[in-house]
Design a protein around this nucleic acid. Sequence first.
RNA 1: CGGGAUGUGGCUCAGCUUGGCUAGAGCGCAGCGUUCGGGACGCUGAGGCCGCGCGUUCAAAUCGCGCCAUCCCGACCA
Length: 578
Amino acid sequence: MRFSSCYIPTLKESPAEAEVASHRLLLRAGMIRRLTAGVYVYLPLGLRMMDKISKIVREEMNAAGFQELLMPVVQPADLWKESGRWEQYGKELLRFKDRNDRECCLGPTHEEVITDMVRGEVRSYRQLPVRLYQIQTKFRDEIRPRFGLMRGREFIMKDAYSFDMDVPGAEQSYKSMYDAYARIFQRLGVGFRAVEADNGSIGGSFSHEFMVLADTGEDTVIFCRNCDYAANVERARICWTGEKAGRPCPPCRDISTPGAHTVADVAGLLGVAPAKIVKTLVLLADGRPVAALVRGDRELNETKLKNLLNARDIKLAAPAAVESLTRAPLGFAGPRGLDLPVYADLELQGDTDYVTGGNAADTHTMHVDLSRDARVAVFADLRNIAPDDRCPVCGGEVSLRRGIEVGHVFMLGLKYSESMHAAFLDEKGRERPMIMGCYGIGISRVAAAAIEQNHDADGIVFPPSLAPFEAALLCLDPDNAGARAAAEKIYALLPRLGVDVLYDDRRERPGVKFKDADLLGMPMQLVIGAKSLARGVAECKDRRSGEKGELDLDNFESAFGRWARRVRDGWNEGAQGS
RNA sequence: CGGGAUGUGGCUCAGCUUGGCUAGAGCGCAGCGUUCGGGACGCUGAGGCCGCGCGUUCAAAUCGCGCCAUCCCGACCA
């Protein structure tokens, strides 16, 4: 493509709305524009990038034996009522009525639609497995859209679904998707980890997330430094190997702690370690109040509590509710004499003689032995894993890193096939539910994550596999007939070598072209000007390493071929993953 | 939904505290000229319901109230 005829509105300055690198650079490079909160236009360059990603995804999906189809964005409410998610999904599901007053929604995912379709066609085990995917626009009315393409409300997703007749078959489908995902992210040149994850509102029996490691990620993942255990913190099991404390402690005593609302306040005032304080949190599980206890230096994991209680929804109680339930202002709740079901983190069994809230204003209680002084319903794993914890598999040391969830594979089991009656007849003529899996990749989010990982002070540093163009060709002196002719010749040649090129033929000053080429981040830069022409060469620059060289114009094709291979190899060596 | 911030030409921002004359700058855009290897320079010019509404006032970008939008921090997810 000739730059002069392209719509690539680059920006010299960063728009104020963009905070993180990928958002800023996508805007500056003229790849996206915001239409409204969390909804973006993909400009030509941005669309080319999406197409590059989609192409790789399609190749790997097809290779894994999945077939592409395309499902509608608008879906009837009936299907969602059947699966039970019309009530479950919450406000993220954008609902509306059509002219006939029928309830509809915009598809945030397609389990219902595809299950409905498959159950209508598939009757026999002979027709299984069915393995399908699509690349399509999704809409989720997110509470807080953020960071450009990272968390949009409207976004592009690849979603795949498998229907198998038995568990081994379903596991085979799951495995082939898991492997395909690893290949996809490797080919896209992003550093990633596959981690165990919670299933969330999709449901099912187990799942893995594919995380791109980046400090701006919204998730935290932990992985073992010794074995290959890796998990989302939401999910990471904690192996508490301590002994149950039998150590007796003195009787409880209330103590005045005016104004000490936080663990830090109490620790400072009483001169005790945060680990000797018990945090008492009041939550509403499906509207029912419960208390959760964790050590003062730990964080409650609400997902674990939600799963333990089998609750649909869990949230911290509002301050007013806490006050009426504990008869004390926020910050002074304690398990002693509390008239609520109390759930305590396992680790709290390891000691006695804790400090807790006193359930009265400006009061804490010392010398608390939870098994003696409180009625704890269950001790369970309820907290987030921390850097000082050990790997639940091998006991090794763990690391915590931030990550961006770009893919998620779910073993759904019977969740949808039972509620929506997707069944088949097996070889003995018995009716059995299909075993399902579903698998998502956030195509637009991958783009953001890749840029988050690959950029520098000058702009984007695109991995070749998803660069809108693999090469930039700059003609610095378009008015010089010789330079122009040489550039045109290269421009005609590169596509024949399988390299798509953005040819900057604009009548702009050289500085403008250099800046734009760096900003747009094409992996290979070629420069032709009167100066280089006089030496009989085209200059070349590897965008990533910044390494410069010269390619002989007389022998251009082979010189370019060698250099291009070096640039690509540099990326392949850099690619990592697990 | 709670907390914080912001809203002034296409972009980045000043002006608002202490109301007052024709609302400014840089970038970008158009024309002309000089330039021409890392976002040039000069001259000329176009472009603004100062987020919207109501109010206070002789007078509002500026003060008050309400609304809307956007961004950031916490509960969801690809």
